[in-house]
């Protein structure tokens, strides 16, 4: 199973049967019928990826940035810091760097992309125009270095409407009234998209001391007062900005609606960290002019 075009046998059998199944709740199902969407089947996509931290980016091979020690390189983010102390010692980290772990990002995207590709393929199999109420999860399987990417959604046909161009169904995380409201707001869903950024913070002396609160002790920070730990702040900001940049690249001039953000921090040594940020949302496109509804009536519950 190396790419789309290879659904499991049971999938084909299931999707061929006449009746539909849908993951929609009853209110969402009702809203769906109201919008003229006919559910045609529950569709899913799955991919299991193996991670090995023992290669590049492993905590055991500190500093093996594939970009070497130079700034930049291959268009990936990297930023360096140099020791202000002028000390030469094996224990003194005279140099530090933040760099983007593009290999982690591309592996994650491969997992997400494969699962998504299979979801779309299943939907095409049932002749769907779109997939609504998509959920996606990625979590670690059992106790192994395996992450599974799983997507689930309800395939629908828009009654009395032509199929999307190329027969490729659109997809969205929204369902039910929320989808109706999106359409009402003048946006058509295009696809669910995700962007991830992984930034490795390889601390230099100042970051290490500040993160351990050792500044005053050696007098190297110059002060015992509080100060910003620039390298770490920059790392966090870079991870977020990169993730945003990665979704922007897939967006064209469309809008990314309802972004959910997940961040993860993994400490791999004193001051050394791996910072990850994932953004997911529905890419939507405006299909009519800005035409806001009047502000709704405010209400108070009587109970």
């Amino acid at each position: 199973m190396t790419g789309p075009g290879d659904l499991p046998e049971a999938a084909t059998r299931r999707l061929e049967s006449g009746s539909f199944s849908s993951g929609l709740t009853v209110p969402d199902f009702g809203a769906c019928l109201q919008m003229g969407l006919r559910p045609v089947g529950l569709v899913q996509g799955f991919c299991a990826m193996q991670w090995s931290w023992y290669g590049a980016g492993s905590p055991y091979m500190r500093g093996t940035s594939p970009y070497g020690t130079s700034d930049g390189g291959q268009g990936a983010y990297s930023q360096s810091w140099r020791c202000p102390h002028g000390l030469v010692s094996a224990e003194h980290r005279a140099w530090g760097q933040n760099y983007e772990q593009t290999w982690v990002e591309s592996a994650w995207l491969q997992g997400f992309g494969s699962a998504y590709g299979r979801l779309i393929e299943e939907a095409k199999e049932v002749g769907a125009h779109g997939i609504i109420g998509v959920t996606d999860t990625s979590h670690n399987l059992a106790d192994m270095n395996v992450t599974e990417f799983h997507m689930l959604g309800t395939a629908v046909v828009v009654e009395d409407a032509p199929a999307p161009p190329g027969g490729d169904p659109w997809s969205t995380y929204l369902a039910g009234q929320r989808l109706a409201k999106l359409i009402e707001a003048g946006f058509m869903p295009i696809s669910v998209i995700a962007g991830i950024a992984s930034v490795r913070v390889w601390a230099y002396c100042m970051t290490e001391y500040l993160m351990e609160g050792r500044v005053g002790t050696y007098g190297w920070g110059g002060a015992t007062s509080t100060q910003e730990i620039e390298q770490v702040s920059e790392g966090h900001l870079a991870a977020r900005a990169l993730a945003r940049e990665h979704v922007r690249r897939q967006l064209g001039s469309d809008m990314l609606h309802g972004v959910s953000i997940t961040t993860a921090e993994r400490e791999v040594g004193s001051g050394d960290q791996v910072l990850e940020c994932t953004l997911r949302g529905t890419r939507v496109r405006r299909f009519k002019g800005f035409d806001p509804m009047p502000t709704p009536r405010p209400t108070v519950r009587l109970s």
Partner: peptide, 15 residues
């Protein structure tokens, strides 16, 4: 070792 790859057997089985 050192690569992040899809595990086809695994994917197939759980799928």
């Amino acid at each position: 070792v050192g690569q992040n790859i899809e595990l086809p057997n695994f994917t197939q089985a759980l799928y």
